[in-house]
Design a binder for these strands. Sequence first.
DNA 1: TATTAGCACTCTATTGAGTCGAGTGCTAAA
DNA 2: TTTAGCACTCGACTCAATAGAGTGCTAATA
Lengths: 344, 344
Amino acid sequence: MLTERHLEVLLSVVHEFIESGEHVGSRTLSRRYLTGRSAATIRNEMADLEEMGYLMQPHTSAGRAPTTRAYRLFVDTVLQRRSHRDLDRGEWVEHLKAHRNGLQGALTNATELLTQLSNYVGVAAFTQLKQARLSKIDFIRVDTSHVLLLLVLEGGIVHHRIITMPYDLPQESLEDLTRRINTLAGHAWNEVRILLHGYIAQELGGYADSCRKAIDEMDRLLAAEHTTLFTGSLSNLFSVPDFQNIARFRALFSILEQESELVDLLRKYSRVDGIGVIIGEEHDVPELENCAVVFSSSSTEGQRTTLGIIGPKRMNYEKVISVLDRVLHDMTELPDDSGSGANC
Amino acid sequence: MLTERHLEVLLSVVHEFIESGEHVGSRTLSRRYLTGRSAATIRNEMADLEEMGYLMQPHTSAGRAPTTRAYRLFVDTVLQRRSHRDLDRGEWVEHLKAHRNGLQGALTNATELLTQLSNYVGVAAFTQLKQARLSKIDFIRVDTSHVLLLLVLEGGIVHHRIITMPYDLPQESLEDLTRRINTLAGHAWNEVRILLHGYIAQELGGYADSCRKAIDEMDRLLAAEHTTLFTGSLSNLFSVPDFQNIARFRALFSILEQESELVDLLRKYSRVDGIGVIIGEEHDVPELENCAVVFSSSSTEGQRTTLGIIGPKRMNYEKVISVLDRVLHDMTELPDDSGSGANC
DNA sequence: TATTAGCACTCTATTGAGTCGAGTGCTAAA
DNA sequence: TTTAGCACTCGACTCAATAGAGTGCTAATA
């Protein structure tokens, strides 16, 4: 099907198009890439490639641009070429927990780093799974009818929420409840939950309602998979030619702002086998049809984390992949505080 | 200086320009606003107003647009007209504390509401002042060398941070320290601080270093004024004609993303006398020269909060001011949970 | 004296014709 | 199988012409 030279021509077109952003003509290829062959020869190859769905022309007298299919081939070639260096198999997240602002802080840092190095947009998605283990719980009275629920999970992830208490629960009951739950530290929430319900019905009779409310709130925080998205600065996008067009910028922007679609996308495609790439219309998010996502996922018992870079479909894949690789690698190297100094 | 009719013409120009976005000619005014006067008469007035710095022409054969000075006059007129309804004097923040996601959640909500109602961008800035009172503190061991510092301030504001402990502080000392600090709940941090230092030097001898590190970290969180910015969705901006121009969009966007400049601006101009408006170049942030900010501030002992709307200089001031007014008013009306249902 | 009608003038925006150049497809020769 | 040659296509750019909105000034008018 695809001869050796077809491939050569195709990869050259992709490369040149990524470089210049302009539709590539046969003459350009003949001069810069395949100096042995004349433009006419290349024209024939290009016509074949177009027929096979790898190239497209906006109009008769223009050069050709790669289709998503061509990008896919290109990216797979790049990924294959470096697959032997693919050491990390998703353990990198373990090394983020000691960051001074917790995992959240570490991910914020990482996205910013990815953004700076790639000149596109770094993103991170952190998903709290059901198996997350409780580390500590606390109730703090804000006023007579409001209590602050404070919840720390293993790995230093903090949740908090204010609960309105319908009855005025006595201080002792509250403290008792707290103590009771904290003895269960280290267990997953669904275990804790069962143990608690028995205790409440049995010993807290009159205040069961109030307590159940607190439990409900915790359920809401813990029972469902809950994903937080971190996004690097978008200012780089303004200098990417593909996003000068306000409509395209808007499309990407709305996805990043809205979060949910991107979260779904990353969940759907996340695997733990090194680096993944989603290009253009390979997914079903129309707003991202001019974009590509390069990412890597990491999973532990209680959480799933994905780090990646979003940029135009016409991105410098080689660079972006190596940037991601590099950042993941560096994170596992430096075990500790990447925060600013002050480590006396 | 400014005759009655000058004023009439000027306000009409501003009004029409805000409506249409196009430079206003004398004929338009004569037909739509000052039907009694001919275009020629109005032309004379406009020439005067231009000389006085209220109007400007991009070129000879175009209509005229208001200058910042004209907007200022216009806004002051609007503000004056409704000043008697100006009930709120910054007490609104008191009513936000019971929100189910804390003050942070309430402000997120409020900015989103302002955004939706105004069709521009709602913002909120929350500044933690030095006088903030401690409500509860906790240290939670993450692993042998890391401790999660958890800090709750009055009003349910939660801070947390991971600290690296150089020596392995025994569990008892940590608990003792925690207990000790918590007896000081209700005091401002600068008081707590002094009491603590004595205790540490005296009784914790060998572990003083470790503890001091924790104290330093708390200092960093509490001693300095620390402002958090909340921004509503920016998607409205895409439909505002003034921001179709990518350069203008970028200018506003970079300010909102960068945060610090806007925070400074709001700090500098925040007063507690109702609603304030900053237009175009009245401040010294060049990126905001095409924008205006309508805002209101609220101050209590421990914090300063500002809620506002950012939009183009050519914004519908009357509407925006009334939206802000309305939201502030509503917040003080509804004392409780604006969260979704579940108030059993 | 203040207002207005009239007119010449200025400047932008739009339209259409003309041209240039990059690139293609096809054919015939090497 | 490759390549040179040629006619053809189509977007991008330039240029001139025109329409239209608005102005400033002057002279007439109430």
